[in-house]
């Protein structure tokens, strides 16, 4: 075995980080032979394996694409997994209608670049059909009723597997998720009765009407995602980088002033330098005050963060088990 003498080389290349070529050619270019693979490469390889397994085991998979960084990374990995062919499945965007304009703009450019098929499922359509009911009040959000639209889209398109960008480090209920997560014919998750997953063998067998959620990024952390975005030079919506905007404080998080939220009488609007750590529905995705304007600064910020990234998500704060409850219903 020749893998022992790599320490010096690893240190050296660490100092001249990061360039795309250095990241990828590392095992091939080094003079001393090394079979060591860094953590990002291992995570990438695992995710690509899962994506290919999904294409192979299911008849009609789809990739859930929100325009957030995790789904962007997942779509990027899917492109790598099937290169030089196109993605063997469409992207599915569940659109609450409460988007930051930057997200939609990014989505359309990204999809065109990927030459992928995009299916948009609109929450508004579910509301018009009467299958979903809009929440009332100042805290009204379409976050919860997205599930209705998602399940309708799954049924309408007969999708049998939906790839999601969920990560186990995000939230405590997600820590229990499988890579291949089984859903019954009502789209529900039964966390107490999950299939054990061993080695890299994944059991996607199902009965008619059931489907799977598949999470290729299960083992990634927020830091891994940012490092990978940097190493791969993946363009992101500019919402992720520090910018100035009108915000107001609600439930401990800065919410952006948009046409979709009502600022209460006791709430005051502030103009601040902020960025978003996650991007979801504009009504419940909080910003953080930040001056991080580059990937390096963001990585530095993530390294020193004292709050989890979902700490800015009002949807998770509704109760201790908000995520678990929504997941059981069929949420992402």
């Amino acid at each position: 075995m020749t893998g022992t003498e790599t320490g010096a080389i690893d240190e050296e290349s660490a100092n001249q980080r990061p360039s795309r070529t250095a990241f990828f050619s590392k095992p091939m270019d080094t003079q001393i032979h090394s079979y060591q693979v860094n953590h990002l490469k291992q995570l990438e390889s695992e995710a690509i394996f899962i994506l290919r397994e999904t294409a192979a085991q299911f008849e009609r998979p789809a990739l859930l694409f929100s325009g957030g960084k995790d789904s962007i990374v997942m779509a990027h990995l899917a492109r790598k997994a099937f290169h030089p062919a196109r993605l063997p499945f469409p992207l599915l965007h569940v659109d609450t209608g409460h988007n930051f304009p930057e997200t939609l703009e990014y989505r359309d450019r990204f999809v065109a670049d990927l030459r992928a098929q995009l299916i948009v499922a609109r929450v508004q359509d579910s509301i018009d059909r009467g299958t979903a009911r809009e929440e009332k009040g100042p805290n009204a959000s379409r976050n919860a009723i997205q599930t209705v639209t998602l399940l309708e889209a799954i049924e309408e398109n007969r999708f049998d597997a939906c790839l999601g960008g969920g990560r186990r480090d995000e939230e405590k209920a997600r820590a229990k998720e499988r890579f291949f997560s089984h859903r019954d014919d009502f789209g529900q998750w039964d966390p107490k009765n999950q299939r054990p997953e061993l080695w890299n063998i994944f059991n996607g067998r199902k009965h008619h009407g059931e489907h799977f959620r598949v999470f290729p990024l299960s083992n990634w952390t927020e830091m891994d995602v940012w490092q990978y975005i940097k190493a791969e030079d993946i363009p992101l919506p500019n919402l992720y980088f520090s910018h100035e905007r009108d915000v107001f404080k609600r439930a401990g998080a800065w919410l952006a002033v948009t046409e979709f939220v009502t600022v209460g009488a006791e709430e005051t609007v502030d103009h601040r330098r902020v960025r978003f750590r996650t991007i979801g529905d504009a009504t419940c995705t909080g910003a953080v005050e930040s001056t991080a304007a580059t990937l390096d600064e963001i990585i530095q910020e993530v390294a020193t963060a004292r709050q989890t990234e979902r700490g800015t998500r009002a949807d998770d704060k509704r109760s201790e088990t908000a995520m678990e409850d929504r997941k059981k219903e069929g949420y992402f």
Binding site: A175, K192, Q194, P196, N219, T221, E324
Partner: peptide
């Protein structure tokens, strides 16, 4: 910190393998 599910917290038991990450 490692118990994620409602039933786990209610009953003070761990039901399933939980994956934790640190660096």
């Amino acid at each position: 910190l490692t118990d994620g599910l409602r039933a786990e917290r209610e009953q003070g038991i761990t039901i399933d393998v939980a994956y934790r990450y640190f660096a």
